[in-house]
């Protein structure tokens, strides 16, 4: 049973590719807009062999990683602070909620003005986008901690540090990981968007270039690479979340 789901997914994907191939061959799909998998696959291999493409991927991964590593502690710290200090929370939580709803892309020109079009700007924009997700995640993580369990720990002699370590952290872990995963999706989106909008390197920059010059096989191959990486990161975080949150699962 455990292998059934991946098998079905594989069959589904192969089916779609097969259909795609057939539709291009039959002239239903224009090969110039959507080249068939048989064209994209070799291009994918070729791209992965090009030093400049690999370097661009490295730049993007670097930006994504640094932005994430900054966003997580900053976002969670702000979230915890707002949740634990009612006065501060009352003032700033509406602000955070309001800013969360604003599409961040409209701020891109300002980020270019401040940071230029280099790596720093991608990181800054990634952090700016991601941090709101993590602030909200941090707040709801604190709120998900059952007060009764804190009382239990105190009744059994826990000091403050022990309350944090034995109650807060395990209780919050699944919620924190969930919002980290969500934040990562926002983060990747933001960095790629910033690269497409204006950059000197990065896979988003390449994609924008191939798109503008209508190099469709390159474009699709790059999309496949980015999608695969993003899915891999997401799956990894999801696995971790499932493992740390096993106790949350109700019996069937």
């Amino acid at each position: 049973m455990r292998y059934l789901e991946p098998l079905l997914v594989a069959v589904g994907v192969c089916g779609i590719f097969g259909l795609w191939e057939a539709m291009v061959a039959g002239g239903i799909i224009n090969a110039r807009i959507a080249p068939p998998p048989s064209t994209i696959a070799p291009m994918l291999v070729e791209l992965l062999g090009r030093a400049n493409v690999i370097r661009s991927l490295g730049v993007t991964l670097y930006e994504v990683a640094v932005a994430f590593l900054i966003s997580v502690p900053v976002g969670f710290f702000i979230g915890f602070t707002l949740a634990e200090m009612p006065g501060l929370g009352a003032v700033f939580r509406p602000v955070v909620n309001f800013l969360f709803g604003v599409p961040k892309s409209i701020f891109l020109p300002i980020f270019i003005l401040i940071f230029g079009v280099g790596i720093e700007q991608k990181i800054a924009f990634g952090v700016f986008t991601t941090v709101f997700v993590l602030i909200l995640g941090g707040i709801s993580a604190v709120e998900s901690v059952p007060r009764e369990l804190v009382t239990v720990a105190r009744a059994y002699g826990a000091n403050r540090l022990q309350v944090v370590r034995e109650i807060y952290l395990p209780a919050m872990a699944p919620v924190l990981l969930e919002s980290a995963r969500l934040g990562m999706i926002f983060n990747i989106t933001a960095v790629l968007l910033a690269e497409i909008y204006g950059a000197r390197d990065g896979i988003g920059y390449r994609i924008a270039g191939w798109g503008e010059s209508l190099q469709m096989p390159q474009l699709y191959a790059a999309l496949a690479i980015v999608a695969t990486l993003a899915i891999a990161v997401n799956e990894l975080l999801q696995q971790l979340e499932t493992r740390l949150g096993a106790w949350r699962q109700r019996p069937a």
Partner: peptide
Amino acid sequence: FQEANLLPWLTALENVAFPLKLR
């Protein structure tokens, strides 16, 4: 307590041992 208030991420055994862990 009224509700058993067990720590949901610990097994029954670890829950019983919890006060000793704190010590």
